[in-house]
Amino acid sequence: MIRHLLSAADLDAGTATEVLDTAARMDEAIADREVKKLPTLRGRTVVNLFYEDSTRTRISFEAAAKRLSADVINFSAKGSSVSKGESLKDTALTLQAMGADAVVIRHPASGAPYQLAGWVNGSVLNAGDGTHEHPTQALLDAYTMRSRLGRVDGLSVAIVGDVLHSRVARSNVLLLSALGAKVTLVGPPTLLPLGIEDALASGTEVRYDLDEVLPGVDVVMMLRVQRERMEDAYFPSAREYTRRYGLDGARLRALPEHAIVMHPGPMNRGMEISPEVADSPRSTIVEQVANGVSVRMAVLYLLLGGAK
């Protein structure tokens, strides 16, 4: 097993499958139990180092670590930057001195987890860095697909929206492709980085028309679109965006019957996804949250267990 999880590219198909299988076993081990806790990581320390507010991701990692009986330290470093407060390196040295076995880092700057990994001895888990990656999100998405559709290999997955600024999209393209899915990126050309077809994984397709894509997919994953992007001229108006790329009831009905709708959250209801779709039984959004804990337990177990 690898020592750090910095990018979904760190996971080949075999390793990714090991994580998903382990997550399934973890689910099984604590299913229908009163004591939702395993002693596996007793005495280990997991630090959640969050430079961005992301309550849902932090809570998910915290729950995962606690269910494995690790000691969890939450280190909220928001507002810190090089100009004011402590540098990332000094923080890293502090965590090192505290004996952190794993550091879960969320950071607004792409690549920050790579630097952290060079400064601490423990495992580093990327919980989202800038516009780069969010590998555990991709793992929980793959896990959700596997539990809903039985497999990932051979699935056709459309990822729709602001790919340019999305760490979720990058990690998903890498991981889903490695697991044999075919990924199609859909959005306005302004929000699809130039050359992304070849930059991450061969076989990635880029399309601009959502309606053409929907009838042929098994999974449609909607990305959060921030209204502020409008001010940077990425698209003319929220209304036009929703009309062209929002998933509403009519588009939901254009999907094959078995297809599922995913969203990494938090959603902009009414923007990229209509309330009707978000709350439909085809939506896996709540499951994704639950699966996030299992997948993160598996990652923590395998990373910490791998550090000999």
Partner: peptide, 8 residues
């Protein structure tokens, strides 16, 4: 180190 988790 970590071992493969078996079924329960």
């Amino acid at each position: 180190g970590a071992r493969a988790v078996g079924p329960t």
